[in-house]
Design a protein around this nucleic acid. Sequence first.
DNA 1: GCCAACGTTGGC
DNA 2: GCCAACGTTGGC
Length: 135
Amino acid sequence: MNYWLIKSEPHTYSFAQMKSDKKTMWDGVRNYQARNFMREMRKGDIALFYHSGKDRQVVGEVEIVKEFYQDPTTEDTNWVVVDVKYKRILTNPVNLADIKSKKELSEMHLVRNSRLSVSSVSKKEYDSIIRMSEV
DNA sequence: GCCAACGTTGGC
DNA sequence: GCCAACGTTGGC
């Protein structure tokens, strides 16, 4: 099982919306690196849900329920989507500032490349963030 | 609101 | 194929 992090601007699509939708198609990714990560996602993988913009925190978890397929919102065959399902809200959201303050999280794509909207997360990084959310 | 970082486009 | 110009994202 692999771990991921997906970003959303809460004004565009919030985790509250994710919760009420229960399941959504993760579309609109127009970046090759992000697209490549989406292609690697497998059913059952977990993704952290991050609010960019004013929030800047990891707020919950979703599960990949359908592997990549053509993005139906475009004719361009370069782009794909996956389906994700609401899993749970974190007990406490984990702030970007706190993530940045942890040495063991300094290699995260989220820290290294703030503009990447879909990225991989190692098991260690994932566990570390979950631990931070439980304090 | 500003700006750094990054990606894309297009002229040469 | 290089690189300047431009647009977008997202942190601050």
